[in-house]
């Protein structure tokens, strides 16, 4: 059978979601952000809620998330996305309001905003990209950087006496009465991508149903920051990150 007989509209089983626009993404080759962006766009499209969705973008590599997903966006100051999402969600209670934040944004400079929004049980979804490094500023230590892991500001590896311990913020958020769903996912294999998609979809539905705060932590790679190829990064993540940040639901009410 000729390829051209297969490549026909009626045979299409997978396509780029329309909400993910044609803007060329600034992310490095193999970056997990792209996959998660694609999932967010797919889910909003499938749920048919594009008209009532407001995303809040962070500071970090995904600062430009608003360039790629065709919904309304507010670009937050570093760490402040949950405060912004709080206001929008309270003022538009029928809207789907989500933040998209990295580990530095969510678990360092924005810890207070994140914990208090979650503790108030704001009806928002927090998508948390944990790649254990600051990507945008050039690969410095993040609160989630593993012990021994080399970054631009831990050039000899993260040391407890110098830098303290990696912060398992997902576990902390799961302890709060305001969260209804806290899950840890990844997007390094087709199966993982499918699971992550189901998790984000569930989180979005929780927000629409006003069940409290949902947190989807995506343990991710930063191959540029980690100084590995995308393929090696995935392997390294499975071997090292998953031990500290195990996959699965931390809370599911």
């Amino acid at each position: 059978m000729d390829i051209n007989d297969i490549i026909k509209p009626e045979n299409q089983v997978y396509k780029k979601p329309a909400l993910l626009n044609d803007n060329y993404m600034h992310y490095c080759p193999g970056c997990s952000h792209g996959v998660v962006h694609k999932l967010v766009a797919e889910i909003i499209e499938e749920m048919g809620v594009g008209e009532k969705t407001v995303g809040v973008a962070p500071v970090g590599c995904s600062v430009f998330a608003y360039n790629y997903i065709d919904v309304d966006w507010i670009e937050a100051a570093h760490g402040r996305a949950p405060a912004i999402a709080t206001a929008v969600s309270r003022l538009y209670p029928k809207n789907l309001v989500f933040t998209y934040q990295g580990d530095g944004d969510l678990a360092a400079i924005g810890t207070a905003e994140t914990i208090h929004a979650a503790n108030r049980g704001e009806n928002i979804t927090i998508i948390f990209i944990n790649n254990a490094i600051y990507g945008m500023t050039g690969g410095q230590m993040a609160p989630t950087t593993l012990l021994g892991m080399k970054t631009a500001t831990t050039p000899y590896g993260r040391r407890v006496d110098l830098n303290g311990y990696p912060l398992k913020i997902g576990d902390i958020l799961a302890q709060l009465d305001g969260t209804c769903y806290v899950t840890r996912q990844s997007v390094h294999t087709p199966a993982a991508v499918r699971k992550a998609k189901a998790a984000i979809k569930k989180a979005f539905q929780n927000s629409l149903d006003r069940k409290g705060t949902s947190v989807v932590e995506i343990v991710s790679t930063c191959n540029s920051g980690w100084k590995l190829t995308p393929e090696q990064s995935n392997k390294w993540m499975v071997e090292h990150m998953f031990e500290k940040y195990p996959m699965g639901d931390l809370k599911n009410l």
Partner: peptide
């Protein structure tokens, strides 16, 4: 085999998949 594994993991949504 049109399983779309490639498209699922593609960070840049470059791949569209067809199956018969």
């Amino acid at each position: 085999i049109g399983c779309a594994s490639c498209a699922l993991v593609c960070p840049d949504a470059c791949i569209e998949v067809y199956k018969v």
